[in-house]
Design a protein around this nucleic acid. Structure first.
Lengths: 229, 229
DNA sequence: GCAAAAGTGTTTGGCATACACCCATGA
DNA sequence: TCATGGGTGTATGCCAAACACTTTTGC
């Protein structure tokens, strides 16, 4: 097989970043998507936010910039960690693009009203419905979710998705929505409290027509490695 | 501060791979190093094997090629997994180079006589003595060792460093040399055997002037995620 | 018989799991 | 008073951790 000819400026690999930006709203895991219109390959398509690296910025800086420019979310408030670098030769039909992909997490609470808004350019989609994405973004999303699932079981990563104050039930629901399993309420509480990563707050959350719930916060902002579940 | 001018062909990021190739010989963790001579920055220096991507190869293919060309080790026999992508703007003083770094593991047993040989071009060094490497390779090696340490505790990754047949004591020593801890012999045996990842062989290893040891092999070539230690 | 490494068992405590009912609140 | 989610304890079994001596072999 002969390689089809490519324009000279695309012959060598070009560096890009893509970002899987995740949040939780109402116990539902959401991912930020953007519209993709790149005829002839992608028309009225959707994908993950991303773009090329500038010559003098790191991949992580490029990620933050593209989230702002394309996803319209201020990523300086988000937690970002590198996920994987995708270098398949044909992952972009227009030319050779290698993508350094980041996983970004942000609590719904930290988003501004505008950032919560869905527009035709960029919007929040339930991860279960983020399918048929452009390029290799279906694969990237799958890798990101697998990593997220794995990491929350042995690190305190979930705190990057939780609001500052939350009840134990809300925390349990967050785990359940990511892991897609049911947890035992009593055992979950015993375990998570024994870890000592939570601090109780002096006030409770009332508002439902039921008993007020004790509020907690994470004792540290840091993501540390301890067996959580 | 003004950026120093750079030659035009280096203004955009160039893609490279570097590889941390690890083996174990005599219970000692070794890493493959190569000579680095890039005046004026690096003279008579040492570093990890690596190099630029060709336009039509993936990063992983480039890693295998560079291991052959520069480290003189046939990497098609090695286990390779992506480690991290380093994109600091100044990691290479000659220009903008982004490196996709791989962790590669190979049992000493699988190396040919030539591949075991040390030359001024490429050699095996105890990881404890691989210091003052060129570029950001000290940092890369540290990340690689941390990853290796972490992964062997919750996956069966160590089998990619073991010979086909080994005794339980040899396996225990492999864990100990990577983790830099002592393990309890009786507890280690109980645990590793209960996991069911090892299969006893019909023969024993004699040769010392002491009791012959039962030989084992890994039941599967695959690296799977189970709590090992 | 001795040096060297192989091989083996028990006790203890802590932790995971399974499981069901009462409590506080607002409507 | 009722509907709703908040909050709690116990019994069981498994597993991790600590710990020392006997066995087999070659010299």
């Amino acid at each position: 097989m002969q390689e089809p000819p490519r324009p000279e400026h695309l012959r060598f690999a070009v560096l890009a970043t893509d970002t899987v930006l995740i949040t939780i709203n109402n116990g539902e895991l959401l991912v930020r998507l953007v519209g993709v219109n790149r005829p002839p390959h992608f028309v009225d398509a959707k994908g993950l936010p991303g773009g090329l690296l500038h010559p003098h910025e790191t991949a992580e800086q490029a990620t933050v910039r593209h989230l702002t420019e394309k996803a319209h979310v201020d990523a300086s408030k988000a937690y970002i960690e590198q996920l994987y670098t995708f270098s398949n030769v044909d992952r972009d039909p227009r030319g050779r693009v290698v993508a350094v992909v980041y996983l970004a997490l942000i609590p719904w609470e930290k988003l501004s009203a505008i950032e919560k808004t869905d527009t035709p350019e960029s919007w929040w989609a339930p991860v279960t419905q983020a399918k048929k994405l452009a390029y290799d973004h279906d694969e990237i999303l799958a890798v990101a979710l697998a990593r997220l699932r794995s990491r929350i079981t042995y690190t305190t990563l979930i705190n990057k998705l939780m609001p500052r104050e939350f009840t134990l039930t809300e925390l349990e629901h967050a785990y359940e929505s990511i892991l897609k399993t049911d947890l035992d309420k009593r055992n979950f509480r015993k375990k998570i409290l024994k870890l000592g990563i939570l601090a109780p707050l002096p006030h409770k959350k009332s508002g439902g027509r039921f008993r007020p719930a004790q509020l907690y916060r994470f004792a540290s902002e840091k993501v540390t490695e301890i067996e959580v579940l």
